[in-house]
Every structure is written in structure tokens, then in C-alpha cells.
Simulated scan of single mutants.
Amino acid sequence: MMFKKLILSVAMFSLFLQGCALTYPPLPEPEVMINKVDLRTDWRKGVNGGFGESSERFTLVPHGDFLYFTTNKGVVYKLRKSSGSRIASFESDLDVSAGVALNGDTVYLGTYNAELVSISLSEQKVLWKKVLTSEILSEPTYASNKLAVQTADGWLSLLSANTGDTLWRIKEDLPALTVRGTSSPLIQDGKVIAGFSNGKIKAFSLLNGSEQWSYEVRKPTGRYEIERLSDVDGRLVVENGIVYATAYNGTVTAVNLANGRLLWQRSIPSALSVSIKDDVLIAVDLESNVVALNALNGAELWTNDSLKGRDLGSPAFLGEYVAVIDRAGYVHLLNSKNGNVEARKVADLNLPPGSRMVSDGQQLFILTRNEQVTALTY
């Protein structure tokens, strides 16, 4: 009975947070500026569906000349990056919660019904479905013909990408209260690296799932459960043998991929992933301050607080600039050397809160809740 009450209270808290997210007051218009960079719209296309509950789970995957993604209505798309023209699509009746991982023209996605699904765009069919232990709240990861996926109940599983058969799985205990979501695991150098709701990142052998190392990014502290939230929900990033992780109400941490030893740590609470280019790491904290750090030692390079309170999404590098998108639909380009905002543009007049933006270095791609995909460049 106590367990059921706990689950109910957590569910109610989650609904409360989601409700708050949908009733934010409108943001004020940003200051009028003359753009130093010609940030422009390449194309905008309507699609069948948007990102649903959380845009962080509906990543777009640029690969070669194409862009792959799924929507919350279960439609998988392959678009041409240069024009937005549809190359292929596949409609399903799946209740999609996260996606996608990519293997050629095969995509993998997760559902609220705990299904991990493999879909072939070239063959236009579902190849296999695997029912896991709980809903999937982050996209799976593909490498070496294997899939790593986390479920909301704390299980990390490794599966065959060909058949969906489980190769191994491990369970991490969850705290009483967590942020709704999980990070997406990574497969790198013979290891599966994952972040958990208890503030830990761990590495496991790709071969058999044995634990290789563990590091506690942030120890839960505080009298009340809500003060103790320490989820590692932002996407993990691996660059040059270093694992970078962010913890809610906590830190940005860099650890050695080989042995899990701490390299540096900074107090920057964030629920978003970081972006890295040329040893410059960009993080956005819970108040939407944009911070640049030296990725090798954690030294601060600059901080921009001019966008504070604008509910920024995860940052992305676009050429020599840092791009961030706010809840009002504005994309801001920051000079990566000093953090100054040098251009901004409304990405979509009807852009809803929480839209996700990804970059291939030359273009920005945005999937919105109102069923639009937009490409920007300069």
C-alpha cells in the first residue's frame, strides 16, 4: 500500500510539473538587434505529428545527406537535408515515446508501452518488437550491431540489433522521487556508459554487462526528496576519451572513459546535455545562463546571462557559433569566443515550448510540437 501511495505521489508531482510547463506566462520579446550574421530559414515542412510530451526524447538524426526522425504519432521520416523533401516515411500505430537510433535505413524507437521497435524504411515494415520492463523515455543507442536502452524503472539492457534478443541487462535502484526521464546510454570503446536517476554514471562491459567503473556525479543532499533530485538526465557526451555528464540541481562533470576517474567538476545545475567543439564545452543551467568551459580542465571561458529566464533548450554548435533556442521560438547565435549574441531569428511563429534543436555543424534542425520541421543556416 505504501508503495502504491509513493507511486501515486510521484505521478501527481510529475503531472504537476508538466502542467506548469504548459501554463508558463509568455516571454517578453528580446531586445531588437542588428544581426551580424545572416541567420535564415532554409526550409520548413509540415509532418504528421510532433514531439509530444518532451522534445528531448525526440532527437533528429542528421546522417549523410538525410535527416531521420519519428513523431509522437508513430510516423518515421527520412528527409533530404538540403531541401526538406521527403525521401521515405513509414506510418505505424505505435504510441511513440522516444527515438530514434539509426543503422543504415533501419531506425529504432521506443514506446510508452515498453516496446523497443526496429523499422526498415527501405523495406517499409516493422522488423521486430521487443517488450521491455517499463516505458522508454530516451532514445536507444546503436553501435557494433547492438542496441543499448534504458527504461523508466531503472533497467539498462543490451540487445541484438538484428533480432531484439536481450544479451544482458542490469538494474539500478531508483530514489523515491526522480525527474521524469532517463538519459540515453552510449556505446564506446567496448563499454556501455549510462547515467542514472541516483546521480551515478556507470560503465559496463559491452561483452557481458560486468560493471567496469562507477562515479557519483552528485550525491543527493537535502531534507526533502525534491531537494535531493540528482538525476543524470542530460545526454552523456564522450569526446577524446572523456565522458561529460550533467546532473539536475548539481554539476557538470568530466570523467576518464577508461577508468571513471574524475578529471574535473563544476557546480552548474542542469537538466540539459552539453555541446563540445574544439575543447570548448557549452552548458545551459537551470536559469538559462549559457556557460563556456575549457573541456579539458573545466576552467570558465565566459558566461552569458542575457538570456536568463528564457527557458533555453540544449545548446548546439553551428559553424563557429553556439546556437540556443528559447521558449518563445527565437534561435540565438552566440560568438563561441566571447559569448556575445550576434544574431537571432524566430524559427517558427507558432513554436511551442520545449522544441528540440540539433545541428550537423552546417544546419540547425528543429522539430516542434505543432508538427513542423524547420532548417536554419547562415
Score class of each variant (00 low, 15 high):
residue 175 P to D: 12
residue 172 E to I: 01
residue 183 S to E: 03
residue 191 K to A: 15
residue 177 L to Y: 13
residue 165 D to G: 13
residue 185 P to L: 09
residue 173 D to T: 14
residue 203 A to M: 00
residue 154 G to V: 01
residue 149 V to R: 10
residue 155 W to Q: 10
residue 160 S to C: 07
residue 163 T to D: 07
residue 155 W to T: 14
residue 147 L to P: 03
residue 175 P to Q: 12
residue 190 G to V: 04
residue 170 I to S: 11
residue 194 A to D: 04
residue 150 Q to E: 15
residue 149 V to T: 09
residue 177 L to C: 10
residue 154 G to P: 00
residue 145 N to M: 08
residue 183 S to W: 04
residue 175 P to G: 09
residue 146 K to N: 10
residue 150 Q to T: 10
residue 153 D to M: 01
residue 150 Q to R: 14
residue 179 V to G: 06
residue 170 I to Y: 09
residue 183 S to G: 11
residue 201 I to P: 00
residue 200 K to S: 12
residue 151 T to Y: 11
residue 194 A to I: 08
residue 192 V to F: 10
residue 183 S to L: 09
residue 196 F to N: 03
residue 170 I to W: 06
residue 189 D to K: 14
residue 149 V to C: 12
residue 173 D to E: 15
residue 195 G to V: 00
residue 161 A to H: 03
residue 154 G to N: 01
residue 199 G to I: 03
residue 178 T to W: 01
residue 196 F to S: 06
residue 143 A to F: 00
residue 198 N to L: 01
residue 154 G to K: 01
residue 196 F to V: 05
residue 177 L to V: 12
residue 142 Y to M: 02
residue 154 G to Q: 01
residue 154 G to Y: 00
residue 195 G to N: 02
residue 203 A to Q: 01
residue 142 Y to F: 15
residue 167 L to R: 15
residue 169 R to I: 06
residue 175 P to W: 11
residue 186 L to N: 10
residue 177 L to H: 11
residue 202 K to Q: 09
residue 192 V to D: 09
residue 171 K to I: 02
residue 192 V to I: 13
residue 191 K to M: 15
residue 164 G to C: 06
residue 184 S to A: 05
residue 172 E to S: 04
residue 147 L to M: 03
residue 174 L to F: 04
residue 165 D to R: 15
residue 187 I to T: 05
residue 151 T to D: 15
residue 141 T to N: 02
residue 197 S to N: 08
residue 201 I to Y: 01
residue 177 L to S: 10
residue 185 P to C: 11
residue 192 V to N: 06
residue 145 N to K: 13
residue 186 L to S: 11
residue 166 T to P: 13
residue 202 K to W: 03
residue 190 G to F: 04
residue 185 P to F: 08
residue 164 G to Y: 07
residue 154 G to L: 00
residue 184 S to I: 05
residue 168 W to I: 05
residue 139 E to F: 07
residue 200 K to E: 15
residue 188 Q to M: 11
residue 173 D to I: 12
residue 158 L to C: 13
residue 180 R to G: 06
residue 140 P to R: 05
residue 172 E to N: 08
residue 175 P to N: 08
residue 185 P to T: 07
residue 185 P to M: 09
residue 201 I to W: 03
residue 157 S to Q: 09
residue 172 E to Y: 01
residue 146 K to A: 14
residue 143 A to L: 06
residue 143 A to S: 07
residue 178 T to D: 03
residue 155 W to F: 15
residue 164 G to D: 04
residue 155 W to P: 01
residue 184 S to W: 06
residue 199 G to D: 02
residue 169 R to H: 14
residue 186 L to Q: 15
residue 182 T to E: 09
residue 189 D to P: 04
residue 155 W to M: 13
residue 151 T to E: 13
residue 141 T to Q: 08
residue 178 T to S: 02
residue 197 S to E: 08
residue 164 G to E: 06
